[in-house]
Design a protein around this nucleic acid. Structure first.
Lengths: 115, 115
DNA sequence: ATCGTTCATCGGCGATAGACGATGAACGAT
DNA sequence: ATCGTTCATCGTCTATCGCCGATGAACGAT
């Protein structure tokens, strides 16, 4: 994500008052732009809450790799993290997920009402 | 996008029959994971249709860079391309955009009804 | 005190992304 | 025929991604 010289918030007028800054939206989508993370997200939501190990067992990925994916999801705000003894519990933040979905809807709507 | 050894379509049972394959979804989000491309998308939809030059003038990016971003959007199926004389006309594919929005909604729903 | 388990982080590696300038094809206009 | 404009593509560069194994901290259990 190189910091391109887009005029800051240039298109953030008019319709887009309900749409977060492009960088923010892009960052969220970036978190969703890897198949493993999508699968992890599904898995987390199906189990309500998982520790890292559970995810590692489920997917054919090294523990360090899974840990990184989880970190990315947490940093994107899509997953909540809570240390629990020697475990780490991860859970989908359903509100955040709904939020990003709303962002996309808003983007789509702004595109469709554009003409 | 490294081809990870995710069990093919492992989580594609049950609820997710309406959700496209994770790789597909991820690829679409990847196209949206760059702020410039989001801005370009907005710009395209506001103008209904643009040639590359118009986008270049609008954003502080080299022509080659814009051309690449447009190509990515086209390859993701979010933007339609039509050559027009020496110009290239690009237009948002609103249906595709609505479609990806629906994919995300489905993902969110599957996550929320998970428990 | 020691061992096993869980986890985050580091370092390294290859692949990809994203930026740019340069180039040449296609086309309109002169 | 020549020039200017528009555009896609190529080559290059740097930064980041995504993967892994190794390591050490934290903790439970023995």
């Amino acid at each position: 994500m190189t910091e391109t010289a887009l005029e800051p918030n240039r298109a953030t007028g008019a319709l887009s008052n309900c749409i977060p800054d492009s960088h923010t939206v892009a960052a969220r989508f970036a978190a969703l732009s890897h198949p493993a993370r999508i699968e992890i997200l599904k898995h987390l939501s199906a189990s309500n809450s998982c520790c890292c190990r559970e995810v590692v067992d489920r997917f054919d990925l090294a523990q360090s790799t899974v840990s990184q994916h989880l970190k990315i999801l947490v940093e994107a705000g899509l997953v909540r993290f809570e240390p629990d003894r020697q475990r780490s519990r991860y859970a989908v933040d359903r509100a955040a997920l709904a939020d990003i979905s709303a962002s996309l809807n808003a983007l789509v709507n702004s595109c469709c009402s554009g003409r």
